[in-house]
Amino acid sequence: MTSWWVAVIAGFVVVLAVAALLSVLIVLVRVIDRRVVAVRDTLAAAAANTASTSLIPETASRVDAVLAEGLEHHLFLGRART
């Protein structure tokens, strides 16, 4: 009779341990799901931020043109003052 109660108690402990581990697993899966969504949203934002990178060379050439024009004005005004 004693071994019967030991087996019942051991089975109950095993069931509680399995339930606790499954609860932990469910919590971890939910955390992973939330973080996957956050990573996906971050990657989408990064793609949106870099969508116009093809305009960088055009912008650089126009900035160079503006700087060259400013240098010409500076040199002209420097000559005009003397």
Score class of each variant (00 low, 15 high):
residue 29 V to F: 10
residue 31 V to Y: 03
residue 4 W to E: 15
residue 27 V to Y: 10
residue 6 V to E: 08
residue 9 I to W: 09
residue 8 V to G: 00
residue 40 R to W: 04
residue 21 L to V: 01
residue 41 D to N: 15
residue 6 V to Q: 12
residue 20 A to V: 08
residue 26 I to L: 11
residue 5 W to A: 08
residue 24 V to Y: 04
residue 26 I to D: 14
residue 29 V to A: 13
residue 14 V to E: 09
residue 18 V to N: 03
residue 29 V to N: 06
residue 26 I to W: 08
residue 23 S to K: 07
residue 20 A to W: 13
residue 36 V to A: 03
residue 23 S to V: 07
residue 1 M to G: 15
residue 8 V to C: 01
residue 7 A to H: 01
residue 1 M to P: 05
residue 15 V to I: 15
residue 14 V to M: 10
residue 24 V to C: 03
residue 30 R to L: 05
residue 39 V to A: 02
residue 9 I to A: 11
residue 21 L to R: 09
residue 6 V to R: 13
residue 40 R to D: 12
residue 25 L to M: 10
residue 24 V to R: 11
residue 10 A to Q: 07
residue 19 A to E: 11
residue 35 R to F: 02
residue 4 W to Y: 09
residue 25 L to T: 02
residue 41 D to H: 06
residue 37 V to M: 08
residue 17 A to W: 10
residue 33 D to S: 15
residue 35 R to D: 03
residue 29 V to H: 02
residue 26 I to K: 05
residue 40 R to G: 06
residue 33 D to W: 09
residue 23 S to D: 09
residue 36 V to N: 07
residue 10 A to M: 08
residue 37 V to W: 01
residue 39 V to L: 15
residue 27 V to N: 05
residue 37 V to Q: 04
residue 19 A to V: 14
residue 12 F to P: 00
residue 16 L to N: 06
residue 23 S to M: 06
residue 35 R to T: 02
residue 5 W to E: 07
residue 15 V to K: 02
residue 17 A to Q: 13
residue 30 R to S: 05
residue 40 R to L: 12
residue 17 A to V: 10
residue 17 A to L: 13
residue 5 W to K: 12
residue 11 G to N: 14
residue 33 D to T: 09
residue 28 L to F: 01
